[in-house]
């Protein structure tokens, strides 16, 4: 098997196992159980850390976009989301436009 195919099969199997393990671990617990509250906090914190790293210290092509443009896009998008009663699609457009506008000015 080619290395790329082997890596794909192994990663997919491990990711499926992580999801199955989570469903099995949660068992008969209810949403207000401390373990569920902790797991939810860890999942949300991981996502927040992912966003923070992707904005402040990204890898790949996104690293070529200046930090100021990335921050402007994030700030404008989040502000639009809060002002427009959490409507995601327009907020996404505002954030993207702000990032591209600041990028073209720098």
């Amino acid at each position: 098997m080619a290395p790329a195919d082997l890596a794909l099969v192994l990663t997919a199997a491990c990711c499926l196992a992580l999801r199955l393990a989570g469903v099995w671990l949660a068992g008969g617990l209810t949403t207000d159980h401390p373990v569920i509250a902790w797991a939810t906090a860890v999942a949300q914190a991981t996502l927040a850390a992912f966003v923070a790293l992707a904005i402040v210290a990204p890898a790949g092509a996104l690293a070529e976009v200046p930090l100021a443009a990335r921050l402007a896009g994030l700030g404008a998008g989040v502000a639009a989301c809060l002002v427009m009663h959490k409507r995601m699609l327009p907020a996404l457009g505002v954030g993207l436009a702000a990032m591209l506008a600041v990028r073209s000015m720098l």
Binding site: A48, V51, G77
Partner: peptide
């Protein structure tokens, strides 16, 4: 490419902001 890649963290940020 940069714009497409930026959509992902921006969308996740909006989910969290909500």
């Amino acid at each position: 490419r940069a714009a497409l890649l930026f959509v992902n963290p921006l969308y996740y940020a909006l989910l969290l902001a909500a």
